[in-house]
């Protein structure tokens, strides 16, 4: 019995969170006394997983099929899993979560999402997960023999553990996918909220879309993604894809900077999992200050330009 991780690739390369997943799997493998294997599709650097404790990789390869398809991928993952696996570890990416529900049926597995803990004992499989949009932790026990865990983003460190890996290359076919991807729209030079270590977010306090250069420039110098509060996307100042919070995207970045956001309960619920929160707001009574690590009571239109130039200075003197 082994642990299988689904190592996601994009444009022929493994994504960074694969290494986080492999490290997590290696961590629980010690308690469970199991080996860690991986499955990936079209990843030229598949052997890199061996740096993080993966001793065997099943590499499905066919350069004619570069698009993800949940039905077909889940079939190929099940084929491998059924042989000798008990655990499947997924990330929290869109594609992995897409597969999770489908695979929990195909593999007859208990499926637990948003996992933020290790497994403490091999006799009963219990993990802690985020629930109630970060307002509670839930300890859940898996009752079926097979188990799928989807690990919350940014919850575990990458740990190097070099081993020798065996790679098995397998051809795969995508016959007649029912969902045909006609096009992908993705801005190439922008970091997405879910992949970013730093997220800079703006609220209604910024007065209008014409002032968003403040958010964008700060995100730029910090190498982060831009986000916004719900009313900002409802007003059409920013696209819906930037709306974060309970009814928008969850954020669990290392650094979250909130500019002109009051910190309503629904907003906080979605961003509270971020490690360090900085708040810039004119109102010292804004509820966000209670949830923040660092706060500046001040006018964003003065503070943010100052902050941008000071960070630039800092970065250039620390090269």
């Amino acid at each position: 019995m082994c642990i299988l991780i689904y190592a996601e690739s994009e444009k022929g390369k493994l994504k960074k969170d694969c290494f986080e997943l492999a490290s997590y799997a290696s961590l629980i493998a010690k308690t469970l006394e199991l080996e860690v294997h991986a499955v990936c599709f079209n990843a030229d650097n598949a052997e890199e997983l061996s740096n993080y404790g993966v001793i065997k990789t099943y590499h499905y390869k066919n350069k004619n099929y570069l698009n993800f398809d949940a039905t077909i991928y889940s079939d190929y993952i099940s084929k491998i899993f059924n042989e000798k696996f008990r655990f499947l570890i997924l990330s929290s990416s869109s594609n992995s979560r897409y597969l999770g529900g489908i695979l929990s049926v195909k593999l007859n597995a208990s499926y637990i999402s948003n996992v933020i803990s290790k497994i403490e004992s091999k006799s009963s499989i219990k993990v802690v997960r985020n629930s109630f949009t970060n307002k509670a932790f839930e300890t859940v026990e898996a009752l079926e023999k097979n188990v799928i865990l989807s690990v919350a983003k940014n919850s575990f460190e990458i740990i190097k553990e070099p081993v020798t890996v065996e790679i098995e290359e397998i051809n795969f076919e995508m016959s007649g996918p029912i969902n045909i991807v006609t096009s992908i729209e993705k801005s190439e030079n922008k970091i997405s909220i879910s992949d970013a270590d730093v997220v800079v977010s703006g609220g209604r306090g910024l007065k209008g879309p014409e002032n968003w250069h403040l958010v964008e420039d700060l995100a730029d110098v910090l190498g982060g993604a831009t986000a916004c509060s719900k009313p900002v996307s409802d007003l059409g100042w920013r696209p819906h894809s930037e709306h974060v919070g309970q009814t928008g995207k969850p954020v669990s970045s290392n650094l979250y900077v909130a500019i002109g956001i009051s910190g309503a309960i629904q907003h906080l619920a979605g961003v509270n999992a971020s490690k360090t929160k900085v708040v810039i707001n004119t109102d010292p009574e804004a509820p966000f200050f209670k949830a923040a690590d660092y706060g500046i009571v001040g006018d964003a239109f003065k503070v943010v330009p100052d902050l941008i130039s000071k960070i630039k200075e800092f970065k250039s003197s620390n090269l």
Binding site: N272, D293, Y294, G295, K302
Partner: peptide
Amino acid sequence: ISSETVKFEKPLTKNKVTLIPSNNI
């Protein structure tokens, strides 16, 4: 059932915010 809740816990309350004067970036 396929999985079962063992218990819920609430996150620990946060440490107090460190306020920084706006003229000391």
